[in-house]
């Protein structure tokens, strides 16, 4: 554990909780992509199956349980409790285009051919692109609520901070896991456009709207 990873995890946690609280408080999930949330639920489920097979630390286990519960809680709010507020007309990204290639890639480029390892790798590849339906939705509607922008910024920052963590770990522990590092870089690059808009608009008190 180092400061970059801790900040990354806290940023990740903040993003997930921010989304959950926003939906709960406003009683609405307008502007949120249900498809991205489905993908994140698949990501957490396939990655954190190791809750039952390997123990790293209390910290890791608690975070995994929180991520899983919050993710399924978000799905419950979006597709059940506040379903009428779900803007499915604008949430039109085809997620099979992400699910299938990520699955194929996880069989091609993987550290070891065991069920848990392939599932872990799949979760890494899928996470890298899971935000695409949400970004697509923002581009279709041309705007995002400020709180949604904060959510996206925290979620994007998490992997960027993990990149710093991997650089640090490379020099201090000789840690080098190219699968997660390259996927993490791809994931962060996808947010770059959004980061630019966030810094130039949202931080100056303006609403995020596309020209």
């Amino acid at each position: 554990m180092n400061i970059f990873r801790l900040c990354g995890d806290l940023s990740h946690l903040l993003a997930i909780l921010l989304l959950l609280v926003k939906i709960w408080k406003t009683r609405s999930c307008a502007g949120i992509s249900g498809k991205s949330q489905i993908l994140f639920a698949i990501v957490y489920t396939t990655r954190y199956l190791d809750l039952f097979t390997s123990f790293v630390s209390i910290y890791n286990s608690v975070m995994k349980i929180v991520f899983l519960s919050a993710s399924y809680g978000t799905l419950y709010l979006m597709f059940y409790k506040f379903k009428p507020t779900y803007d499915h007309n604008h949430d039109s990204f085809r997620i099979l285009y992400l699910i299938v290639p990520a699955l194929v890639l996880s069989f091609v480029i993987v550290h070891a051919y065991t069920l848990m390892e392939v599932l872990w790798t799949y979760s890494i590849y899928l996470e890298a692109v899971a935000i695409m339906p949400q970004l697509f939705m923002v581009s279709r509607t041309g705007e995002a609520e400020t709180i949604t922008s904060h959510y996206l910024f925290a979620l994007g920052s998490y992997r960027a901070l993990y990149i710093l963590n991997w650089i640090y770990r490379y020099y201090t522990e000789d840690f080098l896991d190219l699968i997660v590092i390259i996927a993490g870089i791809v994931q962060t690059i996808l947010y770059c456009d959004f980061f630019y808009l966030y810094i130039t608009k949202v931080l100056k008190g303006k609403r995020l709207s596309l020209p």
Binding site: H12, S54, M63, K64, H111, T114, L115, E117, W120, V180
Partner: peptide, 10 residues
Amino acid sequence: QDSSFGHDEL
């Protein structure tokens, strides 16, 4: 053998 490959991150 540890099938989880020692993934210690989240």
